[in-house]
């Protein structure tokens, strides 16, 4: 499944990193503790986090995550979006909370 399929199915807002929408998405990881994410996240994972500072792009890029989903319409810092555009990491915003996003992603079979 591609990131753009998830965007369509969950009606996510693409805040940045549009060039990465063709990335392959496989598996979901949700956690806000960065060093925990660093040791447990896997390539192509969809990452759900409430963190909104630029360093999340570094983490996602190093681990080759497919995209970052920000739950509950939390607004994201501008510098984060700029970095995400540079690294082609899609930052997607949802009105759902992390649990509800997981449920939807599970239905999609991500």
């Amino acid at each position: 499944m591609k990131v753009k399929d998830i965007v369509d199915a969950l009606k996510l807002r693409v805040l940045a990193g549009e060039k990465g929408l063709n990335r392959e998405a496989n598996g979901v990881y949700t956690c806000d503790l960065l060093s925990w994410v660093m040791s447990h996240g896997k390539k192509n994972n969809v990452w759900i986090t409430v963190q909104i500072h630029p360093n999340i792009v570094a983490v996602a890029s190093l681990l080759e995550f497919s995209c970052i989903i920000i739950p509950e319409n939390i607004s994201v810092e501008e510098t984060t979006l700029t970095k995400a555009n540079e690294e082609n990491i899609p930052i997607l915003q949802s009105n759902l909370n992390a649990y509800e996003i997981c449920v939807e992603l599970n239905k999609l079979g991500v």
Partner: peptide, 15 residues
Amino acid sequence: EMGFGGGMGLPNIKR
């Protein structure tokens, strides 16, 4: 608040 401070960094490096 930014998600650092889990005390996992050095153990991650070692591993």
